[in-house]
Design a binder for these strands. Structure first.
Length: 439
RNA sequence: CGGGGCAUAGCGCAGCCUGGUAGCGCAUCUGCUUUGGGAGCAGAGGGUCGCAGGUUCAAAUCCUGCUGCCCCGACCA
């Protein structure tokens, strides 16, 4: 992409409403624009990152056996009256009336709808297990939206819903998501630690929040240091192998880890001093087993091997891709701007022509640009007539992992400079070598 | 929902106290010079001062009401 033909509204100064670093940098880097409190438009650069996050989420959901679909944002109130949540949900739910005065709502989540879909088609235990997910915008009318995308009212969510004949099957489904989440966050470059979460009326220990550690996190979290070095399951993990999955989950839940609400100071204090990690965290995922909470009242039942009808055991599993974009920035930034992990970076490399309009640098850049594109490398070519300092600042701000600096001095020696954004490493090499290095 | 604050050009701000032709920096546009860490000079364009009432000869400025947004708390993915 040539910057001269792109839409990248960089802000040189920080908008005053942005207080936390991810909000500030997203606005400055031209990734998004606030349209109302807690409601944002994704601009091209922001959308590229959001889509990359979604792609990884999707790939890992698919790998675990979950099946993608897409449910609407607007739902009928009748559905929610069936589960009893229409009255319970309170003012967080955005209620709407259509032209016929029918009660509608902008979905804050989809348990009711997916249960309705499930019950109208599935009759037999032989069709189980089933895990359906979608990635769709949600709306929760928070009293106080804040922190930019981190606590917006409208947000993108991947929500999966599992259906099993009994609790044992549901636990296997739960473990699949657990492992898929470990892999998802690892691929995003994040260290996410599963922490015991509130389970509500169901009880048990089948609810975990996945928390990443970031100094700007919203809540206080406590965990055993060894979690930071645990190996994440590889892409060869067999999701149908129940015992193997259970082993992984057991390992990842064996040590102390809790958010402040569930914190047990005594248990934490019993850990060796050097193993105690107390930090701030951001919740990026939440998985939940809730049994027959919706299937029973909504009559989502299947015939079991015994010939009798059983309400299905369900679980739901959420990841917030839009929040993840912000969380990634909280985790990866410095004073100059964002430092994207390669897997989610909007572009892999920024090509900076340090003397736009000069025959040699122009020619070298065009050649590099073509060579990078030919290899399928996502490149943003900064071809505007700006001074070098301004181009450096822009490239650092938007956080593209690599920069190729093409200037007259280096070019005279047949060299360009390759700079790594994450640690500032620089290396002088020939243009051809630079392309090879990035391939 | 309780407490605090803000609203003046695209962004950041001054002006308001003490009413009298709306300013500064950055950004934008034109020209020239410049080109390895947000360039210099010269010129130009851009604002019903959040909205609605009121006071006054005269309101960005004083008064009343409303709206929007931000921060702290309670709540939440």
């Amino acid at each position: 992409m040539r910057l001269s033909r792109y839409f990248l509204p960089i802000l040189r100064e920080t908008p005053k409403e942005a207080d936390i670093v991810s909000h500030r940098l997203m606005l400055r880097a031209g990734m998004m624009r606030q349209e109302a409190a807690g409601i944002y438009a994704f601009l091209p650069l922001g959308l590229r990152v959001l889509n990359k996050v979604c792609r990884i989420v999707r790939e890992e959901q698919d790998r675990s056996g979950a099946i993608e679909m897409l449910m609407p944002t607007i739902q009928s109130a009748d559905l929610w009256r069936e589960s009893g949540r229409y009255d319970d949900y309170g003012k967080e739910m955005l209620r709407i009336k259509d032209r016929h005065e029918r009660d509608m709502l902008y979905g804050p989540t989809n348990e009711e709808m997916i249960t309705e879909i499930f019950r109208s088609y599935v009759r037999s235990y032989k069709d189980l297990p089933l895990n359906l997910y979608h990635i769709q915008w949600k709306f929760r009318d928070e009293v106080r939206p804040r922190f930019g995308l981190m606590r917006g009212r409208e947000f993108l969510m991947k929500d999966a819903y599992s259906f099993d004949l009994d609790q044992a099957g549901a636990e296997h489904s739960y473990n699949k998501m657990f492992v898929a989440y470990l892999r998802t966050f690892a691929r995003l470059g994040l260290k996410a630690i599963p922490m015991v979460a509130e389970t509500g009326p169901i009880g048990g220990n089948l609810s975990h929040e996945f928390i990443i550690l970031a100094s700007t996190g919203e809540s206080e979290v406590y965990c055993h240091r060894d979690y930071l070095d645990f190996a994440v399951p590889g892409d060869d993990v067999d999701f149908d192998n129940g015992p193997a999955l259970q082993q992984i989950v057991s390992k990842w839940t064996s040590l102390y880890a809790a958010t402040s609400e569930k914190h047990d100071a005594t248990a934490f204090g019993a850990l060796p001093q050097d193993k105690q990690v107390s930090a701030r965290g951001i919740e990026v995922g939440h998985i939940f087993y809730f049994g027959t909470k919706y299937s029973a009242p909504m009559k989502a039942v299947v015939a079991g091997p015994d010939g009798a009808e059983h309400p299905v055991h369900m679980g739901s599993y959420g990841i917030g891709p839009s929040r993840l974009v912000a969380a990634l920035i909280e985790a990866f930034h410095d004073d100059a701007g964002i430092k994207w992990p390669e897997t989610v970076a909007p572009f892999k490399v920024a090509l900076l022509n340090l003397k736009q309009g000069a025959a040699d640098t122009d020619a070298a850049c065009e050649k590099l640009y073509a060579a990078l594109q030919a290899r399928g490398i996502e490149v943003l070519y900064h071809d505007l007539d700006e001074r070098p300092g301004s181009k450096f600042a822009t490239a650092d701000l938007i956080g593209v992992p690599w920069q190729i600096l093409v200037g007259p001095k280096g070019l005279a020696a047949g060299q360009v400079e390759l700079k790594r954004r994450s640690d500032g490493m620089r290396e002088a090499l020939s243009p051809d070598d630079a392309v090879v290095r990035l391939s």
